[in-house]
């Protein structure tokens, strides 16, 4: 195991992860970011379908 992954690293990151897991604001921020991306995904899916419909038979 690499020496830079010492006790201090694990102690600190455990604190960070716990804080993150219980931080409602942070998790709401994540949901907002995903919602913003979602618009693009829906657009992309529509665009994909439109393109697929232009394809003829594939042999």
């Amino acid at each position: 195991m690499p020496i830079y992954l010492d006790n201090d690293f694990y102690k600190n990151i455990e604190t960070e992860f716990k804080k993150y897991a219980n931080d409602h604001e942070k998790l709401s921020e994540r949901a907002r970011i995903i919602a913003e991306q979602d618009e693009q995904i829906v657009e992309k899916a529509e665009e994909s379908l439109e393109i697929l419909e232009t394809f003829g038979a594939i042999k």
Binding site: K44, S48, L49, L52, E53, A57
Partner: peptide
């Protein structure tokens, strides 16, 4: 057979309850 179009392929997967993802883009 003339083959199948991508939308026909998706229709077949769906009719067998096999969820299918697709991606095509300009």
């Amino acid at each position: 057979t003339a083959g199948l179009s991508p939308t026909q392929m998706i229709e077949i997967f769906n009719s067998y309850d096999i969820p299918i993802g697709y991606f095509a883009t300009a």
